[in-house]
């Protein structure tokens, strides 16, 4: 199952995107129950595009909350266009998904 849940809704020419990503977003500052530091593990980049068009790139640090939420709006897309969303984290893990703009 994808780590990304995303909805893209078109209204009056504006596409509103709301997304939730499952990710621990560990800062590297916290101590685990074993007394050891929990290693940093956080998303560093989220990209949204429609076809070749760059819509948004988010650069994140560990200051974004666990299971991150992101919403944004853009113009110029049509219903049925595919919005693709991808993320990569500091350990090189990644995921991506596509959603039809409705």
């Amino acid at each position: 199952m994808s780590s990304i849940r995303v909805r893209a809704q078109l209204k009056d020419g504006v596409t509103q995107v709301r997304t939730l990503i499952s990710h621990p977003m560990e800062t590297g500052q916290r101590t685990g129950s074993d007394g050891k530091k929990i290693p940093a593990h956080y998303i560093t980049k989220v990209q949204a595009r429609v076809g070749d068009r760059h819509v948004l790139t988010a650069h994140w640090g560990p200051g974004i909350s666990r299971n991150p939420y992101l919403s944004f709006e853009f113009e110029g897309a049509s219903a049925g266009d595919l919005l693709s969303l991808s993320w990569v984290d500091n350990l090189g893990e990644s995921d991506s998904t596509q959603v039809e703009i409705a």
Binding site: V14, H54, L56, A58, H59, F72, F74, E75
Partner: peptide, 8 residues
């Protein structure tokens, strides 16, 4: 955040 053209 880097916004593309048309992104609000």
């Amino acid at each position: 955040y880097e916004l593309g053209e048309g992104t609000r």
